[in-house]
Design a protein around this nucleic acid. Structure first.
Lengths: 205, 205
DNA sequence: CAAGTACAGTACCGTCGGTACAGTTTAATC
DNA sequence: GATTAAACTGTACCGACGGTACTGTACTTG
């Protein structure tokens, strides 16, 4: 990574932390450049305005997220080739990863942007929407594979179940923050795991 | 309601909508007074600063929320005196209420504040935390009553299950916004209902 | 050594949160 | 009918911030 790309990455990391803690509108460029130890000109060299910073931030966030989830569920599949058990293992790994964050989850950029919709243009909203649809696609594929072997015990739409995990992670982050209980997120992910167990349990009824 | 209280309420409603759409830091007092058609002096007559506006906003939000949930689950109990079935009816009523919001849920103030933590003092964070704990208390009581008659089919902590509904509502609001699918929230609440059905179903195993 | 990269420096504009304080309208109270 | 408090309006001002514009320069690379 060249010198320019390094400064850019540093700016993105500082901005992400600040925006997740204070919101986009309340995050000043002045504070970002103070922490990054560059000047305003330096900032505007990398991003032509605040909107472009936001765009770059979301893109980076979704890419990193994709890689993380890819690795996690690939590892889970290597530990057990049955799709249901692999998914349950993946969820446990995910919960453990969330539990290991000492200060709790720092927050999801998608959520921040949704809760400040008026500040962003269609471009950014399309990015977050496509990111969310990518989560849906990932989990639908896993769930469809599971339901081929294990018929579900309740008549539920698999798209809803696929979105359920995203809902619970987003909600769990908020509950962790609101309650000041960092472990809450992991606990809620494990409850989703409990639901999956009950939904696909072959010994039911 | 006197003239003063009326203006105050109008200000609070305008501020709530603006803050849920743009965030606290990005909401200017100037835009609030423009929409309320009063002057800056008028604003500072009612609230000594922006922080006091936030405090009043959260208090009002949690009070209204409490009343809404009280009525909803009281009505559900009147329709069926079995605690499990009453709860399932309550969840259906809740989902229907959320589905009836034409533009989707406008957002939860607790979530907004959690995602802009650095902007608020301990006072406000205590308010949101106590609000969340009130949700927990409400649902723990309902769940404990259910589990006396219906032993749960999985070994889960009832506190986690009580928080699960709050998690799903908070997450469902974000998913609705991110996907631009207002119905998503109701669908996710109904999935929680599906979980409750599976968890307490007496015909299991 | 020329050229681009990666910034620094300086100056300026309009907006915003907040303060201060004097003046005015309206409705209830004595 | 005068008094008084509530509910504002009007005006002026401050420092911080987002953003623009343009010039200058150290460092690196071909």
């Amino acid at each position: 990574m060249g010198k320019g790309a390094e400064t850019r990455e540093r700016l993105l990391s500082i901005a992400e932390a600040a925006i997740l803690a204070k919101g986009f509108g309340a995050t000043s460029i002045d504070e970002l450049i103070a922490e990054a130890e560059i000047t305003k000109s330096g900032f505007f060299y990398h991003f032509k305005d605040k909107t472009e910073l936001a765009r770059a931030l979301v893109r980076r966030y979704l890419e990193q997220d994709e890689i993380l989830l890819d690795n996690l569920f690939k590892r889970a599949r290597e530990l057990n080739e049955d799709p249901l058990h692999a998914f349950l293992i993946g969820l446990k790994l995910f919960a453990e990863m969330m539990a290991d964050l000492p200060e709790g989850h720092p927050g999801c950029l998608v959520a921040t942007i949704c809760y400040q919709e008026r500040l962003f243009d269609k471009d950014i909203h399309d990015l977050t929407r496509n990111g969310t649809l990518a989560w849906r696609k990932r989990f639908i594929e896993l769930l469809n594979e599971i339901s081929e072997t294990y018929p579900p015990n309740d008549d539920v739409d698999m798209v809803e179940v696929a979105d359920f995990i995203s809902t619970i992670v987003e909600g769990g982050i908020i509950m962790s923050k609101a309650l000041r209980e960092p472990e809450k997120l992991a606990g809620q992910i494990l409850l989703f795991r409990s639901y999956i167990k009950l939904l696909f349990n072959p010994r039911m009824f």
